[in-house]
Simulated scan of single mutants.
Amino acid sequence: MCDSSNNTDNVLSNFPLCLRKNIEELCLRSTIGFLPINLEDIVLNTNNHSVDKDILSNFHFLLKVPYAGKRLKWEVIFDPENFNFAPDFDFNDEEFLSYPDVDRVSENVPSWKNWNIKNPKSLAQVLNEFLILYKNYQIEKLNLENMYSRYSNEYKTLINGKDGIEADNIQVNIEGNIITFLIVLKVDCSSLPQYIQPMHYKGSNLSEHILYNQGNDFCHLKISVSKLENAQSNYSLNLSPRLEQILGNFKVPANDFKKDTSLTDIVFTVKRSLENRLQQIANHYRTKKSYVLNITSSCFRNIIEYDVLTFSKVVFMYAIDDYNCLVTVNIGTKFPIEKPLVILTSVYCPETKSCNQVVDKYPYNPGLKPEDNIKQLLEYLHDVVQEFKAHTH
């Protein structure tokens, strides 16, 4: 089997042995800012600072660091003679730390000053501390330049309001006349369906599939403001794989906003809309689960299969005297308002015959408890299955 651990091992083999624990921690167990750094976010630069082309001597690499909806290209450069020395950084930004204040850097990036190669979290800690310093540099630009004054005030209102967002949960980035805010929206995911793991095949061999760990849930609102005088804004959501899978085509209600809508109004309108949608999904999932589990309880001796991930299907055997019939119950997206689809399937007919019958007139009331609806369904099936038993080809 080829999985993420094998991919990690392949990447780690490109680094000196003393760095591998730090790279492994960075890729598998740490977040930089709001997101992790993935394996593909590491680019090796073997020849920039050395004539030694041996890949195992790599001491210089580029990291694509996630920040405010983009990837910062930061270069990390170690002393190849002694990895016990803290690495140097090239931030590829002429303004950020162009004339570094040693005392300021030491105060804000203590993990760099106290570098310890034997601590596997050292590199992740240094990157996070430099990212906070980079964020502070961006907020200073927001606060100091008059052209950004409106959004400087709105940012302060957002973090200082009664129901404000904590400053640690907002990233700000400025590029010319475009300001980007990336905001963590805290939503309750405890009652949502679990993530359904997709299979990505490398070939026809089932033993070669790759499993992707979806990680922790997150929801980030990205607001980009361009043409500051006319205040044109774009909104989008960056979601974890589970939320992306669950929410499907959920859209930010951009039409609800005018050009002068404040950041605070945008954030809380989107958050409220998102929470309402997630609550609907949680309620739907809970009612489906209750319905399916009640069927399995009532027909526990005759259950053939049921969906334990989305609770959208259950198959059981219905017996009358010496006749057995498969009953498939499919639960749709409009349940419980819309009744489940019930299908009878013969187990006696030749393979060349597909003998199915949809049962659509069984009693169902969305206002009843699942066990009451199921009791009525099972009673109704008695006569329907008797008729189905006598079907002819």
Rank of each mutant, 00 (worst) to 15 (best):
Y148F: 15
C349M: 13
K258T: 14
T264A: 06
V187W: 02
S236C: 13
V102I: 13
L309S: 11
S346Y: 02
I303P: 06
W112A: 07
I179P: 01
E145K: 12
S57R: 08
P336C: 04
N128K: 02
L237R: 05
Y195A: 01
L142P: 07
A282N: 07
H382C: 09
Q232W: 06
L211E: 15
K251H: 12
Y195P: 01
L263S: 04
I117K: 10
E24Q: 12
N249E: 15
N365I: 08
H220R: 10
T392A: 08
T333N: 08
L56Y: 13
Y67M: 02
G203C: 13
S13F: 07
K389D: 08
P241L: 01
N230F: 12
S236Y: 00
K64S: 10
D163W: 02
D265G: 03
L243K: 01
L341E: 10
K70Y: 02
N6W: 06
A282R: 08
T8I: 15
V384G: 01
P66D: 07
K369V: 04
G203L: 01
L97V: 08
Y148Q: 09
N14K: 11
L35G: 00
G69Y: 01
K21F: 02
D307S: 07
Y285H: 15
D321F: 10
N249F: 11
N230W: 05
Y201E: 11
C18V: 10
L185D: 00
P16C: 02
E244S: 15
E166A: 11
Y137D: 04
I77R: 05
L133I: 06
G33D: 03
E175F: 07
I37C: 06
Q279F: 11
E175H: 05
D383F: 09
D163T: 01
F34V: 03
N84D: 12
N22Q: 10
R150Q: 14
P366I: 04
N234R: 12
I159T: 11
E275S: 09
L158A: 02
S298W: 00
Q279S: 15
G332L: 08
D372Q: 12
L228Q: 05
K135Q: 15
I246F: 06
I223N: 03
I374P: 00
T287A: 14
S312E: 10
N249T: 15
S298T: 05
W112S: 04
N324R: 12
K271Y: 04
M1E: 09
Y285P: 08
P87K: 07
Y323L: 07
L309V: 07
K186R: 14
E129L: 05
L326I: 14
K289D: 05
V358A: 13
L274N: 07
